[in-house]
Design a protein around this nucleic acid. Structure first.
Lengths: 224, 224
DNA sequence: TTTATAATGTACGAAATGGTACGTTCAGTC
DNA sequence: GACTGAACGTACCATTTCGTACATTATAAA
């Protein structure tokens, strides 16, 4: 009884080669698994199972587990950076632009918890994999540019305090936005405070935005 | 040829029971291993090797790997909270007290990277273990009290802005301090910026302190 | 001294896990 | 249609890894 001749489901009877699809499918599943369980926690067998293809193909396209992980990490960065283009700030007043930028960053992190988890995991590994990736490096190089532009406009309009570095500002904004996703569980538990509740998320978002504005905008313009 | 009678090294000839020491030794090693490699990454065999005792004893005192992990997590929180007592703020003016509190928190995180990593790892696990721990919950319950006291004094002295919650302030300070340790590797790599360099650490610390002060202290008092 | 229990060491087992050997089918080229 | 390399599936292997069975020694109480 040959298995190849008899179509069990009636629809597809024989194999169909579709490398791009197979590869993308593996990447999709692998990213989810790694982001959920980490490099050592994720299981190749489980990834294979959740794929439409087989374990064999994972090793065919990605030489080993670590290579697959690095690919998933790169994919995560790629996807996230892609979404960031849409932001249009040039037509806004500096203060509004900065406000919108911070709000967007905060929201953006909330919408991409899998990405945050990948970054956390990578930091647990001392950034050993991101070090090897020129792709990620190049993807993110310009991430501060938008902020830089806004800050310069604010300085020119005499609305921002001088002496700040765009990179350091970006660090502060990132810290506040990242922590909101990365430390949800422990913070909620320790203080018996549902950080994820909509009302608390609103509070935090507005704190973060306000905090950055108060740090950057000249005090005399903050009297709203 | 019995092994127990002949002392090979001359000093100790027979076994010595020291449960407390053995247990503490296991905990010490386990904490380091889990914090370095995570729950799934750490190996019981490796922990056993680095211990003065054997794997058998790990299972004797801690029923399984997850229980050992939870114990290590609790130990981490315990040790860290212990160091926090020393802070004396009551004799300082509110602004100075807040400044010192933030500086201390920032430094405290820098000094305890292993703890930070444990918290990161626990969040990767969706806080599944910390949920079970009433110990950790109770340990941290009062972590906001100091801040609460300072904030109230600042309000009474008419130096702080009203309307802020101590818990939310604590969240902001934690976020900035935590991120500084948790995301060192990725941030440094992505922006080709040595976040760990002493000069940059100084900059970040002063940014964080200044940022919190500007957020809390009444603007008219910030003109230093 | 006997005795009971706690503490410890050695060796091993069963399952999980990363990775591969080997064979087959697909799809484009001559 | 024959040929060839890419794409794919199945079965399997070697090792790792968590956990335990079993035996032995220490220690304190009776």
């Amino acid at each position: 009884m040959t298995t190849t001749k008899v179509a069990t489901k009636g629809k597809e009877r024989s194999r169909k080669n579709d490398p791009a699809r197979v590869k993308a499918d593996i990447m999709r599943v692998a990213t989810r698994e790694f982001s959920e369980k980490g490099l050592s926690g994720a299981r190749i067998d489980e990834i294979a199972e959740k794929t439409k293809t087989s374990k064999r193909m994972i090793y065919y396209y990605f030489k080993d587990k670590e290579t697959l992980y690095l690919s998933a990490l790169e994919r995560s960065y790629q996807q996230v950076r892609q979404q960031e283009g849409e932001l249009e700030l040039d037509h806004l007043e500096p203060i509004d632009a900065l406000s919108k930028l911070v709000a967007f960053t905060f929201e953006h992190h909330v919408k991409n918890p899998d990405f945050i988890r990948m970054v956390m995991i990578e930091n647990i590994h001392h950034g050993r994999f991101i070090e090897q990736s020129d792709l990620i490096q190049s993807l993110n190089a310009g991430a501060v540019d938008e902020l830089q532009k806004v800050y310069r406009r604010g300085l020119a309009a005499d609305q921002f305090r001088p002496g700040l570095e765009a990179l350091e500002l970006h660090w502060l904004i990132s810290a506040l936005s990242f922590f909101n996703v990365s430390n949800r569980y422990t913070f909620s538990r320790i203080f018996n405070w549902d950080q994820n509740a909509a009302s608390n998320q609103e509070k935090l978002a507005s704190h973060v935005i306000d905090m950055v504005l108060r740090y950057v905008v000249k005090p005399e313009l903050m009297a709203e």
